[in-house]
Amino acid sequence: MSSLNEVQLTVSQLSSEELAAFRVWFAEFDAAAWDKQIEEDVAAGRLDVLAEKALKHLREGRCTDL
């Protein structure tokens, strides 16, 4: 499969059981990709501004426990 159209066609032809298994696999795949992106963003410092803002709010008492 070399294109999105081919993937879409293949997925559309899956049986109900295969589609359910694909959903589980894709959810795990997508979560792993998201985790990797977050780790890369943290390592590159792209989240530092947000972290500092959150810590500032915490110091100012602007955060509450749920």
Rank of each mutant, 00 (worst) to 15 (best):
A33P: 00
E40S: 03
R46I: 01
L55I: 07
T64C: 07
L14H: 05
F26T: 02
E17I: 05
Q37V: 01
V11F: 10
Q13Y: 07
T64P: 01
M1A: 09
W34N: 04
C63I: 14
E40M: 05
A54Q: 09
L9R: 10
F26S: 04
E52T: 02
A20R: 09
Q8V: 14
L19R: 13
V11H: 06
R46N: 10
A33Y: 03
L55A: 13
E18K: 07
R59C: 03
L50H: 13
D48P: 00
F26P: 00
R46V: 01
L19D: 05
V24G: 05
N5T: 08
L19T: 03
R23H: 14
D30R: 07
C63E: 07
E40W: 00
A20P: 00
D30A: 11
L55S: 07
A54E: 06
E39P: 00
E6A: 12
D48H: 05
A51K: 13
D35S: 06
A32P: 00
L4H: 06
G45M: 04
F26L: 10
W25M: 15
D65P: 03
R23Y: 13
Q37I: 02
L55C: 07
G45L: 06
L66G: 08
Q13N: 14
S15F: 03
E60W: 00
E52P: 00
H57G: 06
R62P: 00
E6Y: 04
S2F: 10
L19F: 15
F22P: 00
V24T: 11
C63T: 08
K53D: 07
A27R: 10
A20Y: 09
A32C: 02
Q8A: 13
M1F: 08
A54L: 14
L4P: 03
D41W: 07
C63M: 13
T64F: 11
Q37W: 02
E52S: 09
T10S: 13
A33L: 05
L47K: 04
E40T: 04
F29S: 03
A32R: 03
W25E: 15
R46F: 05
G45Y: 04
T64I: 11
Q8N: 14
T10W: 14
R46G: 01
S16N: 14
E6R: 01
E52N: 12
L4F: 13
V24D: 09
Q13C: 12
V42M: 07
S3E: 04
T10Q: 14
E17D: 15
L47C: 05
R46D: 05
R62E: 12
L58P: 00
S16M: 10
R59V: 01
L4N: 06
A31H: 12
R59A: 10
G45P: 01
V42H: 08
S12G: 15
N5I: 09
D30G: 00
L50K: 10
A27Y: 09
E39N: 09
M1L: 12
R46K: 14
R23Q: 13
E60T: 01
A51L: 14
K56D: 07
E39D: 13
G61E: 02
R23I: 05
D35H: 03
L19S: 11
E39L: 06
L66K: 09
L58R: 12
L19A: 11
Q8P: 00
L14S: 04
L66D: 07
E40A: 06
K56G: 03
W34I: 07
N5D: 13
A51H: 08
R62Y: 02
T64N: 05
C63L: 15
D30P: 00
H57I: 03
E52M: 06
E40N: 06
K53A: 13
S15H: 10
A54I: 11
